[in-house]
Amino acid sequence: MTAQYLSFGALALVTLWSAYKVVTARLITHAALWMALSFTSVSGIFLMLQQEFIAALQVLIYAGAITTMIIFAIMLSSIREIRVEPQEKRSIGQRIRASGLLAVVVGLVFAAFMTYVYYVSEIPKEAVPDAGLLTVRQVGATLFTRFTVPFEVASILLLLAMIGAIILTAKETE
């Protein structure tokens, strides 16, 4: 049991610390990489819960696809400098932003809200003993029977978003 607690503690710490660094990192590249680390450790927690499928998806979609997309956006845009020059004079607003005070406040409010939701809602607070493993087969069966319509709607939405993105970014060709 202790080993489990220890590894959970380690994973949770890494998750939180890297999430904190995502917000405070000075370079957007570093922020993206911290985010990848955060996602990875979350997937570690899923693995501890023996939800391999969710863990793999977490890595595949978040640590893989999303991070890569952000990285791509960074590389194609003009934010290429590796060093950030320290600013000499800062206004009060900038100082407040730089101190991370705002982040702490927002984080606390969010945490409080989530705790509230957790206690009010009907999420089971104890582990459900016979929940069983979520298998790919189950996910697939559910997606293609009960949730076929939402699934298709979501697909069409994503397709539209893709087309929209292409239209927005495509250069005019004469």
Binding site: L33, E52, F53, V59, G64, T68, V136
Partner: peptide
């Protein structure tokens, strides 16, 4: 989930 796991870890190569 063998194959999905392979696909997942490969994404670290990009990073």
């Amino acid at each position: 989930i063998g194959i999905i796991m392979i696909a997942a870890v490969t994404s670290y190569a990009v990073i």
